[in-house]
Nucleic acid binder design. Structure first.
Lengths: 338, 338
DNA sequence: TCTGATTGTGGAATCGATTCCTTGGAATCG
DNA sequence: CGATTCCAAGGAATCGATTCCACAATCAGA
């Protein structure tokens, strides 16, 4: 491997001068600058970022730990994070927790050991001693998509309360009597928030949400199928289902497609709505009512906040709104609102 | 920051001994081992991977450069790469080239500077001086999904030739007269291969593929819409379209959905098939005929091959087969095969 | 009991770049 | 013209861990 010493030798200067010439330091004579540049080019010199990072502070790298890479929501988030970071001159190391707190901690540890300049985490569980400690030690940390109560770090979240309220209003007004929700694990903050918003909106109509109408999946495809099947297997069947993320929605729709004969028709006997909008929801028949999250904006903001933190600026939490798209799958069954 | 010197000091041993105790070297007395472990724990010591990497060779990191993170195919690939790597004790740095050769080179350079132990690349263009040079310099490199002629590196590809031949046979046998293809850019090896397989299969039936029936998109969503629109705008309209990847298929289906009145009905007047199978293809009506790639296997194999290379073992190219799923969108229009 | 191998430990060199500190020489100013 | 500042450049220290080398102590075999 050709190092800066080789370049310095070839250019007939000291390593320190070579370093200055290559990193564009102010006080370098143009003549020496040119000689070093030429030597570097000729020797095909590639600086060693590991050595640089050791001496100077900062690796110009940020770590991103997402809870499930297979979920398109996180893909888009990762893409936005990557994009924004690159533009700011940072690389991104991605870790995939697979909704597994242990794996999340593994990645947080690895990334901290690698001296990332900052960390963006979608917390799988609401409490994590490691995250707590990292925040306390002063490592730069930003939480995204899900809150984590005991971690002292700024967060940027999608606030779906208004959109969920709007959705519930619509369902009630179009005559739905028996609403159910398939949400995520109780430990995930986003899961709890969506459930709470759903319950509150119902309460505003004087309706309760009995335990049998609350199913907890794990935010992944299979559990959507399983939990919808469970709802459909009961003695009485709800006439509206709200699925709390896109991956579980895929599983739920798959259930309906494979049980076309026995399952209630959508939207006539069963309304379906999803938190998180995916491009293909509009291609189904019936098209699928969904709440769109500002996914890319979440990723962008998270990076901006992290960079602010790194630069020593104060940052505060951010909430971004969601948008409800009413489509065919929640069309009123008896037209009560017309 | 607490360093290994602090730990050594606290344990009353030399830094070298502390290092040995922590990394599990053979010749360390149990007593000293315990004392160092205790001190490390007490001081909450976290080893600095940057310093370690500088001294020892290897960063236990592999770089992955994909051509489009928003494409679910690459997401799944990335997931498999990440998963396999983690199990082998490696982290993954992901770069997203966005189908842009310049951005690809940016990431290859960055990753090499970061001293990744190896690189997995989905080459955006078939020729890249930087990749060529990296391979020539002996950097560990594996290409995946797309070949790159001038790069001396092993590759692992999905070979869709058989599946495409099978698809074309079926289309011809069910009476389709005028087949068209929406493929990717000519510089992408996978795009060229799929086109060639399609053309060869047609030739075997004595059919040609006129230039007007070959549209080149950029493998992304919008271009699927645009190119299908172009095909539908001609004076004569094909009765079958083969879309060469999943992202463009999304755009194409969107076109059909938004032009439901003017577009030819599927499958009666237009058969649609896609290279790359996505979970929601089976949920559409009509369900979508698609060729399934061994996506996760590609990612796994790529990592295995890379690790073999790193370990100094010989590796050779690998081809994995694809599977055709015939669904409703290519149902015979006039039942010619029955 | 004496050699020779083995084992545990400390000290110092090392990885490759950056940066602090010095210094010789040129430029500036009174 | 002498004193002070400024600038370009070299030398050496540094980042934090690993690893080579040396050395003492223990142990085995003859």
């Amino acid at each position: 491997m050709t190092s800066i010493k080789d370049v310095a030798l070839a250019a007939g200067v000291a390593p320190s001068s070579a370093s200055r010439a290559l990193t564009g330091h102010p006080n370098v004579s143009p003549e020496l600058q040119a000689r070093v540049q030429e030597a570097a080019l000729r020797l095909n010199y590639r600086p060693n970022a590991v050595a640089r990072s050791l001496r100077s502070t900062g690796t110009r790298t940020i770590g991103l730990v997402v809870s499930d890479l297979l979920n398109p929501f996180f893909t888009e988030l990762a893409r936005a994070v990557e994009d924004t970071s690159r533009q700011a001159g940072f690389s991104v190391i991605i870790g995939n927790a697979d909704e597994n707190p242990g794996q999340q901690d593994h990645y947080v540890r690895i990334l901290l050991e690698r001296q990332v300049d900052g960390l963006i985490v979608v917390p799988t569980a609401e409490t994590s001693p490691l995250l707590h400690e990292a925040a306390a030690r002063g490592d730069h940390l930003v939480l995204v998509d899900r809150p984590a109560a005991d971690v002292d770090a700024p967060s940027v979240l999608a606030d779906g309360t208004d959109a969920i309220t709007e959705l519930v209003d619509h369902l009630v007004q179009t005559g739905r009597q028996d609403l159910a929700i398939i949400t995520g694990p109780d430990e995930a903050g986003s899961s709890r928030q969506r459930l709470a918003a759903f319950r509150d909106a119902l309460a505003r109509h004087g309706r309760g949400l009995p335990p049998s109408r609350v199913r907890h999946g794990d935010f992944r495809r299979d559990s959507g199928r399983i939990e919808l099947a469970a709802l459909m297997a009961g003695s009485s069947i709800p006439d509206a289902v709200f699925v709390a993320n896109g991956s579980m929605a895929l599983g739920a729709i798959e259930y309906l497609a494979t049980h076309r004969d026995s399952a209630p028709p959508v939207p006539e006997s069963l309304a379906v709505a999803v938190f998180d909008d995916l491009p293909w929801f509009s291609l189904l028949s019936p098209t699928l009512t969904a709440i769109e999250q500002p996914t890319a904006a979440l990723g962008r903001r998270a990076v901006e906040m992290l960079l602010d933190r790194i630069a020593g600026r104060e940052v505060s939490d951010d909430r971004l709104g969601c948008v409800l798209h009413l489509r065919e799958s929640t069309r009123g069954s008896q037209g009560a609102s017309r």
